[in-house]
């Protein structure tokens, strides 16, 4: 971290609500690294990013890269919705809640790529990859071997 300045971060994600709590999460996007908050005192991960650990109330929360491994926990298919680049609702568009390997209940919202619709299912192992959206990287997931 540090290579991408605050000014560059704000310039490359101009329509995203970035603040002091989530700036490292989004800076990670630009570096194609998925960075979530972890408490340096008790080890507890949380998401969305907050300044205080919800488990032990420590302020010693450190943005930390995750492995990108996880499983599909929830899975829906959107048949309509507001336009977004690269999103095709006619297919329809899969929206997945991924439970990350780092901790039970540590989840992130994303979509699934490189997978036939009929092969997508709750419980499938996935791994992180990246697509371009609104001119910047965006974290998505693809099938992984168990």
């Amino acid at each position: 971290m540090g290579a991408i300045t605050d000014q560059e971060l704000l310039a490359r994600l101009p329509d995203t609500l970035i603040d002091h709590d989530n700036k490292e999460f989004y800076r990670g996007w630009l570096e194609r690294r998925l960075v979530l908050n972890r408490c340096a005192d008790c080890g507890f991960w949380h998401h969305a990013p907050r300044a205080w650990c919800p488990q032990c109330w420590s302020h010693n929360v450190v943005p930390t890269e995750v492995s990108g491994r996880g499983t599909v926990h929830l899975l829906i298919f959107l048949h309509q919705g507001p336009p977004a680049p690269g999103v095709d609702y006619s297919t329809p568009h899969p929206v997945a809640t991924i439970e990350l390997a780092e901790q039970e209940g540590l989840r992130i919202q994303s979509t699934i790529v490189n997978c036939a619709r009929d092969d997508m299912r709750i419980g499938m192992p996935v791994k992180l990859t990246w697509v371009e959206r609104y001119g910047a990287p965006y974290p998505v997931f693809e099938p992984a071997e168990a």
């Binding site: 994600l13 329509d15 995203t16 609500l17 829906i76 959107l78 919705g81 507001p82 336009p83 977004a84 999103v87 568009h93 929206v95 997945a96 809640t97 919202q109 994303s110 979509t111 959206r133 609104y134 965006y138």
Partner: peptide, 12 residues
């Protein structure tokens, strides 16, 4: 208005 990402869960 902000960017729209359909993966953000609200009523979904």
């Amino acid at each position: 208005p902000t960017r729209h990402d359909p993966e953000v869960l609200g009523a979904e």
